[in-house]
Each structure stands twice: as structure tokens, then as C-alpha cells.
Amino acid sequence: MKEIVVLSGKGGTGKTSIVGSLAALADNKALADCDVDAADLYLILQPTDRQEHEFCSGQTAHIDESLCTQCGLCQEQCRFDAIKCFKVVPTSCEGCGFCVRICPAAAISMKDNMAGHWFISDTKYGPLVHARLGIAQENSGKLVALVRQKAKELAEEHGLSYIISDGPPGIGCPVISSLSGASLALLVTEPTISGIHDLERVLGVCCHFNVPALVCINKYDVNEDNSKQIESYCMKQGVEVPVRIPYDEAVTEAMIHGVPVVEYCHNGISHQLEALWQTISKYLSR
């Protein structure tokens, strides 16, 4: 079983739209939405029959006012500035529990965080594991790891050949959590100077974690000089750029209709997406 994770560094380059089309093109796969902060894949794949589970992770400190002597030790020692006026600021607390251990009045305790929900759904393209991180919650990396784990279990149970994951933007904790140990990273970029800058950093993360990468330039015709620059950069890095996808309003229209682009239209952009999937499946069978 092979796991493909779609990343980009920069947000809004087209990861989710491309994953939606790969979902329609690939056979025998499970799907995972690892962008748990802002999960959008369900808007294209239209899942049904949801199984819903709670995700508890991490803890937050609570001060019992009736026991607190306001000595101020916790406030002084907290490295996260999470205690102000003898009250815990939940959005700053990192759940280390240091305050609990040093409080001379034993007035502080830790409570588990209900940090979000995760789901297993059916779609016409195969099973989808997705999640919703609670508002302003931490531990998105752990929720991503859980989504991947569940997708893997599903794929093994049903003897599926692929897991296709929609990754989060950036290069930090949830990205590392989506990427480590995957078979292939598909990096979707766009020919803007931000796109190029961010591609370089996310490619750096792939190298760091030893995950091979392919690059796909989306909306390449918005700036063809920049597209050429991306290709020559990738060549120098020894990374293939098998496919360029043109800008096409059909992508937004497909999103509005809640269907993958390859099912919405059958013109040039769909051919490019088909070529992309062929390249990926060939690459993985090497």
C-alpha cells in the first residue's frame, strides 16, 4: 500500500481540488483529509454515513479559586504566560502541568481537552477519514497522525492500494505529521514568487524527512517566466515536474458544484490531471 500526501507550503495553490480529482481517477484507495484546521475535501467528495468520534488530546490547567492563596508562584514560573491574575488563559496553556506540581496550596489540576472530532465516511470514490479540530485548539499534529492511522487501518482492512491525503499548508507541526513516512509527496505550487519561496521550504522538509517528491505547477500560465524558474529550480534539485496545469475557471465552477474537476469538464485541464495521476501511479510502481 502506497501513501501519497499532497502539500504545497503556500496555501490556496489548489491542493484540495487536485486531491478531489485524484480521488476520482485512482482505483482502490482510501482518502484522508489531513488539513484538520480547515478541512475542505468533504465539500468535493460529498461523504455520507458518517461515523463520528471525539478526539481528546492534551490538558489545560484549572485553578480552584477557593484553594488559591494567590502566592503567584505559578504565574512566575509559567513559560507560556498562561496564568494572569491567578486565572489560567486556556488559549495560552500548553498543558505541561508544571504549575500543578509546584502549587503549594494544591489548588491547580489538569483537565482533558476535547480537542475535536474525527470521522470515517463513505464517498462514491472510497472511504474518507477526516476531522475537525476544535476552535482555537492545539495538537493539530496529533489529530493528523490519528487521521493517517485510521486511513491506514481502513486501507489494510480492505486491501486497498493507495491512501491519498490532502495535506495542510505550511511546514510546521501538522505538515510534518502528515508527511513523515509517506511514500510520496506531491507538491502543488503556483508560479508566483510566494509560491516559489514556499515550495523551496516545503521541499526542504521532504528532504529532511526523506520523502521523495514530485512537483505540479498549477495555474502555470498566470506567469510563464516564473513557471520556467520553478522547473529549472526543480531540475537542479533532482525533482521531476511532470505536469503543468493551466488556469481554468472550471476549477472554481466544479468546486461550487461540489464535484471533482475531472468529472465536471473533459477539456485540457482534465487531461492534465489524468496525466498527473498516471505519472504518480507509475512513479509508485517503480
Partner: peptide, 14 residues
């Protein structure tokens, strides 16, 4: 601010 809604966003906008 970065995209998303989790810790980096909260840290940046608070």
C-alpha cells in the same frame, strides 16, 4: 497570520 485556526493562528491574533 498563517492560514488555519490552530495554535499558530491563536498565538498570532490574540
Amino acid at each position: 497570520v498563517s492560514p488555519g485556526t490552530s495554535c499558530p493562528v491563536v498565538e498570532s491574533i490574540k
